[in-house]
Simulated scan of single mutants.
Amino acid sequence: MEARKAAAVALNICAYAFRIIGIALCALVIMLCFPGIVNQLGLTGLVIDLSRVLPGVIAGWGVIVSPFGGVFRFDFLIVGIVFFVLDFACSRFSRAVR
């Protein structure tokens, strides 16, 4: 019984981590639409590092110029949605294990 509870807690922790990463990526997508925010916060290095981490299939895919002067990164949005799906799956499995 303790192993099931430990697995449920571990899945819950993973779900929270995935949720935080997904929220951070979606916030980054919104911030990238405004170049002033990116320059003030110094996010250019972070964006370059994240672009290098992405798989080559989607890296740089769907980069659209926003009307505000920045860019909309559809590839970051896709990865953020994947993290939300992983969050949902971990939450479901955690409830099922308990």
Results as ranks from 00 to 15, higher is better:
residue 58 I to N: 01
residue 9 V to A: 04
residue 23 I to N: 14
residue 27 A to P: 09
residue 95 R to T: 03
residue 25 L to D: 07
residue 76 F to D: 09
residue 33 C to G: 13
residue 8 A to T: 04
residue 44 T to H: 15
residue 77 L to W: 08
residue 42 G to R: 11
residue 13 I to Y: 00
residue 75 D to I: 01
residue 34 F to G: 01
residue 51 S to L: 09
residue 54 L to K: 04
residue 11 L to D: 11
residue 63 V to G: 06
residue 71 V to M: 07
residue 55 P to H: 01
residue 15 A to V: 06
residue 48 I to W: 10
residue 28 L to P: 12
residue 79 V to Y: 04
residue 69 G to T: 08
residue 98 R to M: 05
residue 72 F to E: 07
residue 4 R to C: 00
residue 30 I to W: 04
residue 92 R to Q: 09
residue 57 V to T: 06
residue 21 I to A: 10
residue 49 D to Y: 13
residue 73 R to G: 03
residue 32 L to M: 15
residue 22 G to N: 10
residue 34 F to V: 09
residue 30 I to G: 02
residue 41 L to Y: 15
residue 12 N to S: 10
residue 25 L to M: 12
residue 51 S to Q: 13
residue 75 D to Y: 05
residue 21 I to G: 06
residue 96 A to V: 01
residue 14 C to Q: 04
residue 35 P to M: 05
residue 70 G to H: 05
residue 30 I to M: 02
residue 66 S to T: 10
residue 45 G to M: 13
residue 52 R to Y: 08
residue 18 F to I: 01
residue 74 F to A: 14
residue 25 L to K: 10
residue 1 M to P: 00
residue 80 G to I: 04
residue 91 S to D: 07
residue 78 I to K: 02
residue 75 D to E: 06
residue 87 D to T: 06
residue 91 S to Y: 06
residue 66 S to N: 03
residue 79 V to G: 01
residue 23 I to E: 14
residue 4 R to S: 00
residue 57 V to A: 02
residue 28 L to R: 14
residue 94 S to H: 03
residue 62 G to E: 02
residue 35 P to V: 06
residue 84 F to S: 09
residue 24 A to D: 11
residue 92 R to N: 10
residue 73 R to M: 11
residue 40 Q to T: 15
residue 62 G to A: 10
residue 63 V to F: 10
residue 34 F to W: 08
residue 53 V to Q: 12
residue 43 L to A: 15
residue 23 I to F: 13
residue 96 A to Y: 00
residue 2 E to L: 05
residue 27 A to V: 11
residue 53 V to I: 14
residue 32 L to R: 15
residue 38 V to D: 12
residue 18 F to W: 04
residue 70 G to A: 01
residue 18 F to E: 00
